[in-house]
Nucleic acid binder design. Sequence first.
DNA 1: CCCTTTCTGTAAAGGTCGCTACAGAAAGGA
DNA 2: TCCTTTCTGTAGCGACCTTTACAGAAAGGG
Lengths: 210, 210
Amino acid sequence: MATKQRGRPRSFDRDEALEKALHAFWQHGYEATSVADLTRVLGIGAPSLYAAFGDKKALFDAAVEAYATSDNGTFIDRALAEEPTAVAAFTRILREAAVGYTAPDRPRGCMVLSVGVSATTPEVVAKMRELRALNLAVMTARVQADVTAGVLPPGTDPEKLATYAGAVLQGMSAQARDGADRELLQRVAEVAAAGFAAAAEGREVGASGA
Amino acid sequence: MATKQRGRPRSFDRDEALEKALHAFWQHGYEATSVADLTRVLGIGAPSLYAAFGDKKALFDAAVEAYATSDNGTFIDRALAEEPTAVAAFTRILREAAVGYTAPDRPRGCMVLSVGVSATTPEVVAKMRELRALNLAVMTARVQADVTAGVLPPGTDPEKLATYAGAVLQGMSAQARDGADRELLQRVAEVAAAGFAAAAEGREVGASGA
DNA sequence: CCCTTTCTGTAAAGGTCGCTACAGAAAGGA
DNA sequence: TCCTTTCTGTAGCGACCTTTACAGAAAGGG
């Protein structure tokens, strides 16, 4: 289609600009990243930005889409699909999260988990919440699959386990943003993975109290 | 001291107004709660608000102070001080968090954990981060105390356990805000408490993989 | 009663926000 | 070369933000 475009050529690369916008949103959140910030970071004027992406929300949506389809946004689905058991998958997810949330070349934490909970614009809140709910559903289904297949005992509670894993991931993302280093997060991931395995496999662990 | 004040009396109760402001900040966050919102919720004009509390940030600080000294802000310290062991204390903390984060008469989640990570104004970010770091330090010290007292084995890693607990609490707060009901959060708390106890008491739980 | 003190409502200043009208620049087509 | 098409920079729009100036209202002191 239209290999030769007609008018004045664009002065910037759209994908590069999108990635810069993603990093800005990822670091500072939706509302706190102003269009003025974006034009500065992308090195283009506001009209160019609006012509290329629509408005600020559309640019954010495109950035989220880019995030969701990148390694950062797909490592959970990949682990759930590739590992032979739910326990193995979640162990891998927690370990990879510890590494991914503290990568030196990108903002800390998970965009959907950390930026997502900081947004206040209704449409953005809804979209991010939907993504989190989707992740929880996928994780729940993976546990349920192991129960159905007989890998995990019949009494297993998939919703509980998935929510537990989701909570730990959310906490790790927040801790990473607060400056926790990778090595500490990795130790936390091991505790969480062990706790997940114990709960999944129905091992009774007596907590004090009732 | 001055029992008889001289000028025109204030038309509202300062503490009641402070609590309303706390709830507004707690629900919507610092930046998303505008002064116009506050004057509407408190039922007073902007000049009255500024005369009574200073500026928006000072009002937020006062609200955080009120939160931190309330039951919601002290249940962690109380559990750490009152329970005989660190494991018992953290079990209680996680259970109380599940209940407190889903109380029907106040905003969901923890203000310091959830609103704290959503703020972008530098002074507010710093203050909330400091409160989170303080909580982590207190929790770490409590575990260390049990190690020193011989209640927990010498190889115990207090920083790891405290960060794990902090991450779970942060995740539970976020899940509560996302709409997780109390009963689900309580199940999650049990998994986390069991995982904490297992890790604290040095029980080897074989996770798959390395 | 009048003065001082303090609070109240109106109303606006000064700044930033997202967004866009407009004129000029840079390309291809004829 | 001239036209059309598309992008770029300037400059500004209205809306909202936090904060305050100002005049009037409501209390006590003398």
